[in-house]
Design a protein around this nucleic acid. Sequence first.
DNA 1: TTGTTTGCAAACCTTTTGCACGTTA
DNA 2: TAACGTGCAAAAGGTTTGCAAACAA
Lengths: 151, 151
Amino acid sequence: MDHGTQAVWASDARDALRRAGFRSGGSRSLVIDALASHSCCRSAQDVHDELRTSDRAIGMASVYRALEQLQGLGLLDRVEVGDGTARFEPRLAHDDHHHHLVCTTCGEVTPFADRRLEEAIHDLAERLDHQVVSHDILLRGTCSRCRQEKK
Amino acid sequence: MDHGTQAVWASDARDALRRAGFRSGGSRSLVIDALASHSCCRSAQDVHDELRTSDRAIGMASVYRALEQLQGLGLLDRVEVGDGTARFEPRLAHDDHHHHLVCTTCGEVTPFADRRLEEAIHDLAERLDHQVVSHDILLRGTCSRCRQEKK
DNA sequence: TTGTTTGCAAACCTTTTGCACGTTA
DNA sequence: TAACGTGCAAAAGGTTTGCAAACAA
């Protein structure tokens, strides 16, 4: 998940919005940039904070509205780790798809990828009556740093 | 996940609470019964509603406090499907472990189990620096009923 | 008696919405 | 200019907390 990939996502996102009939608003564009500048999920508050210190601050409502629209177009994945706040990240191509490890001690969220897990889910989805379109996997436990500190 | 299994969970939960030094309060006990009487996850509101119509109604705060305590003792799993409300279900033995399918149309939550998926997660966890203690898997899509109706 | 549990109401926090104003096509 | 985008403030959930009364040990 390099910078190039994220930059492509940002430009794809803008194209998709245009095609969907959205006008090019400055706030929404800043939200896209903020999301594209990170490799893992960010909360609405994270995005807002990041932009608050930039040239142009935007309203919290605009952040939420942009996130909602991007999600509606399938450009964002919503990630919930159980702390009561939703996080969002660019939905990238299959190869860059990842899931999350959450440290139950410090709360840190770390991405991981595993091909075998993806295959198991893919095969399982074929056998279900549901028409599965996406999946989330969350592993909970103690991260290596917190494990060290406990010792 | 039969009634017997759930009954065992309820009694185990009461034992664990006693061992942890909690007194046997009537409200908490009712929350345990309410959770044990269902095979899949329930929200705090669900539990509260269920008890409201019973002999003894309890406060919402008591429901949340009981859920928090049971969670802290590892007796409950918290399930979040992305609709803004947390759900809870008994944490059962490995054999009865399941995950959730969420219908993106009607919101219905359905449990499923898959051994291969569990094996993939187990093996993956061994290779990570994190000490993984639990995992959630959520599949999203259209349930069979909603698929029929769309046609 | 002493500390725990409970219910109510108020507080909190995240997210959504109403509305007036600015901006885009 | 007509519709869309934005910011602010208020509203709307779900969840947590303060407190005084009821209760268990």
